[in-house]
Design a binder for these strands. Structure first.
Lengths: 191, 191
DNA sequence: GACAGTTTAGGACGATTGGCCTAATTGTTG
DNA sequence: CAACAATTAGGCCAATCGTCCTAAACTGTC
C-alpha cells in the first residue's frame, strides 16, 4: 500500500486543478505534470478520467464531512454552527474571488456536461443542505428548517458567484453581516 | 450582406450551445452541425473560436440591454422594474433548472479558463448592476443603491445555482416571495 | 540472490480539437 | 454574357485529447 501516497497525490492535484481550471479544461497531462509522474503511471492508478473525478468528489465529500463534524464539536450552539458555515465565504475569500465556490462551480459544470457523476457532485450540496437543516431544527425552526437551509445555501452560492465576478471584498463582508442579522431574527422568532 | 443571415445563425447557435454545454465543451463541429453548414464556411465568418465568443457576448449584451429598456418602458415604477428583474428566475425557470443562469455560468467558466474575454463577459453582470443601481436610486435609496443592486444580483445568482442543483420549483417561488418582501421593506424605508 | 508482485516510465493508438487553405459555387453588376 | 466579389464546401494540418500497452525498476520474501 505504498502507492497510496501517489494515488493521494494524484487526487489532491486533480482536486486543485478541477477547482482552478474546471474538470473539462484539465487534462491528464496537467495532472501528471503537477504530480511529476508519467502519464503511464497515471493509468495504473486510474483507468479513466471519470474515475479520477469520482475520487475527487469522494475526497471533497469527506473533507466537507470532516469540516462539518468539526463545527459540530467546536460550536455547541446551532446558531454558532450556522455562523461558521456563513463565514467560510470570508475564510476562503481569496480562493473564492479567483475560482468561485468549489461545490457550486463543479455542480454547474457537470450539469452542463450532463456528466454521469453530476448526481454524485450534487451530493455534496445535499450534505450542506442536510447539515444546515439539522442546525435550524435544533434552533427551533421545525417546519421551516429545510427552507432556511436552502436559503443560506443559496445565499452563499450567490455571494461566491458575485465575489468571483466583481472581486469586491467589501461586498462579501456586507453580505455576511446582512445574513447574520437575518439569522438573529430567525433565532429570536423560533425561541 | 446576404451572409448576415448565416453569421446570425452561427451566433444564435453558438449562444445556445455555449449556454447548454459551456464554451469549452462546445466545438466547431457542434456549431456547424447545428447551423448545418460546413466547417470551412464557418471560417469565412469567424477566424477563431474566441471571435465567436465575442460575438455571442455582444449578442447577449444587446439582448439584455433591449430587455432592460423594455422594462424601463413597460414598468413606470422603479419597484415594478426591480420586480421584473427578480421574476426572470420564474420566467426562465425551465432553462435555469437545466443549465443555470447564462450570465453567471459563462462568467464563472471564463474566469476559470482565465480567458481573454472574461472581462467582456463580466460587462453583462455590470450592465445588470448599473441598471439595478439606477432603479434603487429612483426608489430613494441613495447611498445604498449600489449595495442593494449587488444584493439582488447576488440573490438571483444563488437561486439560479440551487435551482440547477436541486430542480426545486417551490424553492424558487419561495425565494422570489422572500426577496419581494425585502424589496417592500426597502421601498417603505426609503420613502 | 532468485523470485513474485507492485509501481513506474515512456511511447503508441485512434479520435478529435482549433485553425487553415483551396476550389467550387453563388450572386451581383457592367 | 462576362467579370467580379461574396459565399460556401470539403479536406488537410499539427497538436492534443483520453486511452492503452509493454518493458523496466522497485519492493519485499524466501
Amino acid at each position: 500500500m505504498a502507492g497510496a501516497t501517489t494515488r493521494q497525490q494524484i487526487v489532491d492535484a486533480a482536486d486543485d486543478l478541477f477547482y482552478r481550471q474546471g474538470y473539462e479544461a484539465t487534462s491528464f497531462a496537467d495532472i501528471s505534470a503537477a504530480v511529476k509522474i508519467s502519464r503511464g503511471n497515471f493509468y495504473y492508478h486510474f483507468k479513466t478520467k471519470d474515475e479520477i473525478l469520482d475520487a475527487v468528489i469522494d475526497k471533497r465529500n469527506s473533507d466537507r464531512e470532516r469540516l462539518l463534524a468539526m463545527w459540530n464539536e467546536t460550536a455547541l450552539d446551532p446558531r454558532d454552527r450556522i455562523e461558521c458555515f456563513i463565514k467560510i465565504v470570508i475564510t476562503n475569500q481569496t480562493k473564492i474571488m479567483a475560482y468561485g465556490c468549489p461545490v457550486g462551480t463543479l455542480t454547474t459544470e457537470l450539469a452542463k456536461l450532463d456528466h454521469p457523476s453530476k448526481a454524485r457532485a450534487n451530493q455534496i450540496m445535499t450534505l450542506f443542505r442536510s447539515w444546515l437543516t439539522r442546525q435550524f431544527e435544533e434552533l427551533g425552526c421545525h417546519h421551516q428548517a429545510d427552507n432556511h437551509a436552502l436559503h443560506v445555501l443559496s445565499w452563499s452560492q450567490g455571494v461566491a458567484t458575485l465575489a468571483l465576478s466583481f472581486r469586491d471584498e467589501a461586498f462579501v463582508v456586507r453580505e455576511v453581516h446582512q445574513i447574520l442579522e437575518w439569522l438573529t431574527g430567525i433565532s429570536s422568532e423560533a425561541h
